[in-house]
Design a protein around this nucleic acid. Structure first.
Length: 425
RNA sequence: GCGAGCAUAGCUCAACCUGGUCAGAGCACUUGACUGUGGAUCAAGGGGUUGCGGGUUCAAAUCCCGCUGCUCGCCCCA
C-alpha cells in the first residue's frame, strides 16, 4: 500500500472545517489591519534561502528539500516565506506602492525534520510582513496586536507573549564578541551543543535548557543590556506602544531567533497546551534583508504562525460542521428517480445542498441515510407524490411532514437556509 | 543526526508477561425483525496470511534477531 510520505498527512473532510476557520479568520482579521494576501511560489532558487535565512542555519544546511531541475538549476521547496515575500517586494518594485507595504500569506512549507508533536515535514504557516522605509516601533506593536487579536478571536487560551531585542548590525557583533569572551573560560565545561553553538551561533547558547549550563548562562551578559542607543530606544518605544495598547507581555532576555536576518524586535507566542514544540507564532524585525537580496534599502517586520500547532491549542468545540445538507431526497422507483434528479438540479441552482443515494433501497434505509448525513430535511418522492404532483417534505428535527408543490418546496428551503445562516452568525 | 516507546478487523482496544481450546469485544458497515418513513432495541452477516522477513519450538499474536512504519523526546523551529 502506498501511503503518505513521512511527516505529511491528509486533511480529511471532517477536519477541513477547522482549517478553514483558521484561514478565514486570518483573512478577516489581517484585512482589517490593511494587510493584503500574497501568494508566492512553493519553490524558489536555493540561493534565495541560502542568502536570507543563512548558509549556516540548520534550516538551510540540513533541512531543505533541494533538487536540481531539468535545466540544471538548484531549486528548493520553501522552508519559510519571509524570503519569498521580500524577493517579491524587490521584484515588483513595491516601494512604489507606498511607504509601508503590508502583506500576508498562508500555505504549505517544507523542512526535512524528524516528525514529532506539532512538527511535520510539510507544515502550514500563516504569516504577515510589513516592509518599507519606515521602522517605527508602532508598526511592530500593531503587528503584534494583530496576532493577539487573531488568537483572541479563535479563543486560543493558555498562551504567553515574549519579546526581546536582538540588536542590529551596529551592536550585535560587539555583543557576540563580549559573550564569547565571557564564556571562553567555561565553554569546555558546558554541554556538547553549546560547544558547537559557540562556534556556529553563539546567541543560541542563551537558549540552552541543560540544567548544568544555567549558572554559566546566568552570568553571561544579556544582549538587552548591550544594545546601541538607537536599538535601545526602539525597544523602549515598542514597550510603550504595547502598554498603550493594553497588550500583556513578558521580556525574555534570552529569546533569540534562529534565522540570520533578524534584527531588533524578536517575539514569540507560546501555548502551554502544545508540548515540546510550544511556540505557536514567532517573528521579528529584519531591517536590511532587502539589501542582502540585492534590493533597495528597506526595513521590515513580520511573523509566522504554525497552523498545526495552532490547531493543537484551539478549543475542542471550535470544530464546526458547515457542510450538512439542506435536503436528502428519498425516491422510490425509476420514475421517481428521474424526478428526483430534475428537482435536485433546480434546488442546487438556488444554492441548496442536496444529496440522494444512487442505489434503490427501502424507504426505511433511505431515511436512515438522511439521518446519518445530518440532512435538515428529507424529501419523499414515490408513486403517491408523482400522482399528486406534490412532494412530501419531512423536517428531520421535528418529524413533521407536509405535501408541497415544487414552487412551495423551493421557497421553504431557501427561507430555511437563510434563517439558519443568520442564526449561526 | 541521536534516544525511547509502540505496531492485532475501517476505528478504539483485549489476548502477549506465565507460548497450546477456531484471534475476541465495542463502535462502524450490510441485512432482517418493521410491504412507504430516521435516531432506540434485538438478531444474523461480511471484514484479520496479528506491519514485513528470519530464528527458537511438536506448537508463535505471544519468546529472540533484523527491517519498515508510527509516536514522543533531543536537536531545530512556526
Amino acid at each position: 500500500m502506498i501511503q503518505t510520505v513521512r511527516g505529511t498527512f491528509d486533511i480529511l473532510p471532517d477536519e477541513v472545517p477547522r482549517w478553514r476557520l483558521l484561514e478565514e479568520t486570518a483573512r478577516t482579521v489581517f484585512r482589517c489591519y490593511g494587510y493584503r494576501e500574497i501568494r508566492t511560489p512553493i519553490f524558489e532558487r536555493t540561493e534565495l534561502f541560502a542568502r536570507s535565512v543563512g548558509e549556516e542555519t540548520d534550516i538551510v544546511a540540513k533541512e531543505m528539500y533541494t533538487f536540481t531541475d531539468r535545466g540544471g538549476e538548484s531549486l528548493s521547496l520553501r522552508p519559510e516565506s519571509t524570503a519569498s515575500v521580500v524577493r517579491a517586494y524587490i521584484q515588483h518594485k513595491m516601494w512604489t506602492w507606498g511607504s509601508v507595504v503590508k502583506l500576508f500569506y498562508l500555505g504549505p512549507h517544507f523542512r526535512y525534520e524528524r516528525p514529532q508533536k506539532g512538527r511535520f515535514r510539510q507544515f502550514h504557516q500563516i504569516g504577515a510582513e510589513a516592509i518599507g522605509q519606515n521602522d517605527d516601533p508602532a508598526i511592530d506593536a500593531e503587528l503584534i496586536e494583530m496576532v493577539e487579536e487573531y488568537l483572541d478571536r479563535l479563543g486560543v487560551l493558555e498562551r504567553a507573549l515574549f519579546i526581546n531585542s536582538v540588536g542590529c548590525s551596529q551592536c550585535r557583533p560587539a555583543y557576540v564578541r563580549r559573550l564569547k569572551e565571557t564564556l571562553a573560560g567555561v565553554i569546555s565545561r558546558m554541554c556538547e551543543n553549546c560547544q558547537r553553538r559557540y562556534e556556529t551561533n553563539p546567541l543560541r547558547i542563551l537558549d540552552c535548557k541543560v540544567e548544568e549550563d544555567q549558572p554559566f548562562i546566568e552570568r553571561a551578559p544579556a544582549l538587552l543590556d548591550h544594545l546601541c542607543e538607537a536599538c535601545a530606544a526602539h525597544f523602549e518605544a515598542l514597550r510603550r506602544h504595547l502598554e498603550a495598547r493594553g497588550i500583556a507581555y513578558q521580556i525574555a532576555r534570552r529569546l533569540v531567533r534562529g534565522l540570520d536576518y533578524y534584527t531588533r524586535t524578536a517575539f514569540e507566542i507560546t501555548s502551554a497546551r502544545l508540548g515540546a514544540q510550544n511556540a505557536i507564532a514567532g517573528g521579528g524585525r529584519y531591517d536590511g534583508l532587502s539589501e542582502l537580496l540585492g534590493g533597495p534599502p528597506a526595513k521590515g517586520i513580520g511573523f509566522a504562525l504554525g497552523v498545526e500547532r495552532l490547531l493543537l491549542a484551539l478549543p475542542e468545540d471550535a470544530a464546526i460542521v458547515d457542510d450538512a445538507p439542506d435536503l436528502y431526497i428519498a425516491y422510490l422507483g425509476e420514475a421517481a428517480r428521474q424526478e428526483a434528479f430534475r428537482v435536485a438540479r433546480r434546488l442546487r441552482r438556488a444554492g441548496l445542498v442536496v444529496i440522494y443515494d444512487f442505489e434503490e433501497r427501502k424507504l426505511r434505509r433511505l431515511m436512515a441515510q438522511a439521518d446519518r448525513a445530518k440532512a435538515r430535511y428529507a424529501l419523499l418522492i414515490g408513486e403517491d407524490e408523482l400522482a399528486a404532483g406534490r412532494y412530501t417534505l419531512r423536517d428531520m428535527r421535528t418529524g413533521e411532514q407536509e405535501a408541497l408543490s415544487e414552487e412551495a418546496l423551493l421557497r421553504r428551503l431557501v427561507t430555511s437556509r437563510e434563517l439558519s445562516a443568520s442564526g449561526r452568525g
